[in-house]
Simulated scan of single mutants.
Amino acid sequence: MVESGRKLTFAAHAALILGVAAMVLPVWLAFVASTHPGTDFLTGRIGFLPGAALIANYKEALFTGSSVSGFPPVGPMLWNSFVMAMAIAIGKIAISLLSAFAICYFRFPFRVTAFWLIFITLMLPVEVRILPTFEVVANLGMLNSYSGLAIPLIASATATFLFRQVFMTIPDELTEAARIDGAGPLRFFWSILMPLSRTNIAALFVILFIYGWNQYLWPLLVTTDQSYYTIVMGIQRLAAAAAEADPVWHLVMTTTILAMLPPVVVVIAMQRLFVKGLVETEK
C-alpha cells in the first residue's frame, strides 16, 4: 500500500510538473528571445539561454523604439493600458457596489425588475452592441481619449450580481443594530458593508484589471491617435511592422514580456485576498 501510494504521488507530481513546464516554456522562450539582438533571429542562433542584449532591448523598447522600422516606444502604451484597466476595474466596482446596495437595502417600486434588467445585459456583451456604442462615443466626442476607452466598458451586471449575493448573506440583525445606533444608509454602507466585502472587492479587482488590460477590439475602434494606443493593440501593430521591415522581432518579444508584467504583479500582490474572496462563503 505504501509503495502504491508513493507511485501515485510521484505520478501526480510528474503530471503537475509537465503541466507547469508546458505553460512556462513559451514564456521562457519569449523572454530568451527578448534578450538577443535582432540579427540572431535571421541566423537562427537563439537557444534556451538568455543573451547579452537584455538591458539594451528593454531600454530601446520602453523609451526609444526603432526609428528605422517605425517601431514606437511602448512606455506610453503601457501607461494607457494601465489607466484603462484601473478606470474599468475601479469604475465597475464602484457602480456595482452602489447598485447592489440600492437593490438590497432600499424598498422602491420594481426593485426586483430593475435587478433583472441589469442581469439580462449579460446577453449583450460589447461585441454585440459595439456599433451603437461606437456611435454614441463618437457623437459625444470621446474618440481618442481615456474616457472613450474606459467609460463604455464600466457597467457590469456580473459585479452587481456578485455584490448583491454578498449583501444578502449579511444578517438583518446587523442592519437593525446599525439603524438603532443612528447610522444612516451611507454610514452603514461605508463602515459595515465595505469592510465585510473587502475580499470580494479584491478578487473582483484582479479579474476586472486583467479584463481591462487585455482589451483589444474596443481600443482598436476608438483610437486612431498613436498616443492612445494600448499595449495589446500595440503588440499586433508592432508585429505587423516587424514582418514588413527590418528584423525587430526581439523588440516584439520584449514588448510581449512587458505586457505580461503588470497583470502578474497585480495577481501576486493580491493573491491572498483574491483566493479568499473566491472561496469565502460566510461573513
Rank of each mutant, 00 (worst) to 15 (best):
V2Q: 12
A14S: 10
L18F: 08
A22W: 15
V27F: 14
A33H: 06
A33N: 08
T39P: 05
F48H: 08
L62H: 14
T64L: 13
G75V: 01
M77K: 04
L78N: 01
F82K: 07
A85G: 04
I88N: 06
I95W: 04
L97N: 08
S99V: 13
I103A: 14
R107V: 12
F108Y: 15
A114K: 07
F115P: 02
I118W: 07
T121W: 02
P125C: 11
V126R: 15
I130A: 01
E135S: 08
E135R: 00
L143K: 10
I151R: 03
P152K: 08
L153G: 01
A157I: 05
A157K: 07
T160E: 07
F161Q: 03
P171K: 10
D172H: 09
D181V: 08
L186P: 09
L186H: 11
R187I: 03
F189E: 01
S191F: 07
I192A: 07
T199S: 10
I201F: 10
A202Y: 04
V206C: 08
V206K: 08
F209I: 09
W218Y: 06
T230Y: 06
A243H: 13
T254C: 14
T256L: 06
T256H: 01
L258P: 00
L261Q: 08
P262E: 03
M270E: 01
K276N: 12
G277L: 03
L278Y: 05
K283N: 13
